[in-house]
Design a protein around this nucleic acid. Structure first.
Lengths: 339, 339
DNA sequence: CTGTTAGCGCTTTCAT
DNA sequence: ATGAAAGCGCTAACAG
């Protein structure tokens, strides 16, 4: 059983003054007798009074909480992103309420509703894999509820959008493979409704085209991110009449799992098949062979997303349109084919 | 500029009824004319009315939010833990507000204050590395504020505590090393104010004692978790007159980094030096050689911590004392010395 | 079955 | 410099 906390009223009663005076003493701005103020502050200290944010929120119709919806905290990328968001939010005096969609459209929808009901002042969102219908956002967007999308963005709305430059990262990675002599480059693509995955595929295709390599549909496999399907994807590729000489997987986890299976099948990495992943997970430098990967600045993306929202909440600016955050190719042994 | 949301008052005005009737229609329990109810519900639908949780919270002095303080979301273990907490909290109709201490005592202290001011109904906490003074918790504990500690627990308070069985995990891991013939087993220990790290050291020492191996202080190194110091720890061990024939590192990240350096120095793993880590990060199965590790059931720990809190909030039970969640030794090549 | 009223903790005019 | 009163959105006694 929790004890009732000290309120402004308690202070007022004890000091025989009105609650408004206490409020003034606490907030400092208005006219107030320095002596009264000192007394109040002393009692506040003694009684360990803590202001009740809820009451304030109700009064001001502003909770100073931002809602965040991401697919999974277990995903390093989103975990870092959260840190970036919190860093900026804290700076602006905001708190963060995080929901995970677990890649479910239904959960995402409920989270939006719950966060809105909780009166969060704005939303920062990376869409779930399943989300192909945006009504739950449309509903609040048309009420001018502040939303910022990042990474898994929704192009349907005119909100700020922060994304890693997946297109450029993918393009550079593919060109790197072409550089080291690969001719049949496979791509394990992600669900194409996800903006980032779509950009990766586009970057891959652009690189092939630029270097006049044929596009072979057999070399493009659409993954659903499920680990248990990786073996199947890998086998499909290895069993082709002419297997690929390089694979660019949709992420490091998939790449690492594939490397495992490829080695089982006695193919040499990178000499038979070069491998590249996306995300540059911290382990990628430690697997055998070390994995070439495209690194995204997750922390920076989180920071920028939060900054955009903070600015919008402060009515400072209202920048819609996409903002790209640079990505970087980290070259390691898994793609360094001798030629 | 956000538009003002629909309130219960709006509905009442339009329908020419009182707000309490609307409230009753919405909550369903009390007597209410089915027709009136239908009208209200229809309008609620049409106007997209969403109840204001803040108003409810103020009224009921219960926010249905639990605060969570963890060191880092980037840490896989805590990321999973969050998922477990959220799973249970959601089940009970609670939301979760997450703060990261980033291993700072100061930030942890501020987070506690902020969460309490935000009127969260309870707290789930894993302490920061820096935290050696518990006053910020004592203050709320004595007000009977519900707290559950997990993993990095604080023994000073009579609250529920959920921890992975680090002692047993460490004991088993050390015995496994002894089994495969190791005689000079080193331990990279963590800060001893952290409960889990302390238990790991105790398990290690217990195993040595049980098997009548001498305890060599040179073989115990106290780490601060900083990646940049790992090289130094490794060198210290390798440069000993008689280097260790096994190392049990405080976590997989450290173990993997050490493996790297050990290989640079041309020691063979596991034949010269066997390696074991803690946590069983998803990559540990993929490094070269695959890393033996102790796995903790992070999800389960999160679930149990949340369950304990939910029960306390429902006044169902008040179990203080530690609850252990089993850990498991995952044996891989890095510890399989031939003998 | 429904309306009236008071109040949750706080700020903020408006008086004094 | 301070107090009284209203109100943020909602629920819950109480009265009818």
């Amino acid at each position: 059983m929790k004890k009732a906390p000290t309120t402004i009223k308690d202070i007022a009663r004890i000091l025989n003054i009105s609650t408004s005076t206490v409020s003034r003493a606490l907030n400092g701005q208005a006219d107030i007798n320095p002596t009264t103020k000192k007394e109040v502050l002393a009692l506040v200290e003694k009684l360990e009074y803590e202001p009740n944010h809820i009451a304030l929120s109700l009064k001001q119709r502003k909770t100073h909480i931002v809602g965040v919806i991401i697919p999974e905290t277990e995903n390093q990328f989103y975990a870092k992103t959260i840190s970036g968001i919190q860093e900026i939010a804290t700076e602006y005096g905001y708190n963060v309420m995080i929901c995970q969609s677990h890649e479910s459209h239904e959960i995402e929808k409920n989270s939006v509703q719950m966060l809105v009901s909780s009166q969060v002042d704005g939303l920062i969102v990376a869409l779930s894999t399943e989300t192909k219908n945006y009504e739950h956002f449309a509903k609040i967007y048309q009420k001018e509820f502040p939303i910022v999308f990042f990474d898994r963005i929704c192009e349907a709305f005119d909100t700020p959008k922060i994304i890693a430059d997946n297109y450029d990262g993918s393009l550079k990675a593919t060109e790197h493979l072409i550089d080291v002599g690969c001719k049949r480059i496979a791509h394990i693509a992600g669900p194409q409704n996800l903006f980032d995955c779509h950009q990766r595929l586009k970057g891959y295709l652009a690189a092939l085209k630029k270097h006049h390599l044929p596009i072979d549909e057999d070399l493009i496999i659409y993954s659903n991110f499920r680990k248990e399907n990786v073996r199947e994807y890998t086998s499909t590729l290895l069993d082709l009449p002419t297997p690929p000489d390089a694979i660019m997987a949709i992420n490091d986890a998939t790449a690492i799992e594939m490397m495992h299976i490829i080695k089982e099948r006695k193919f040499k990495i990178p000499d038979d098949i070069a491998i590249i992943g996306f995300n540059n997970d911290y382990v990628s430098g430690y697997v055998d062979p070390p994995l070439t990967s495209i690194e995204f600045q997750a922390l920076e993306i989180g920071r920028q997303a939060a900054s955009m929202l903070m600015k919008e909440l402060a009515n400072e600016s209202f920048s819609t349109g996409k903002k790209l955050v640079k990505s970087q190719l980290i070259i390691r042994k898994s793609s360094l084919k001798k030629h």
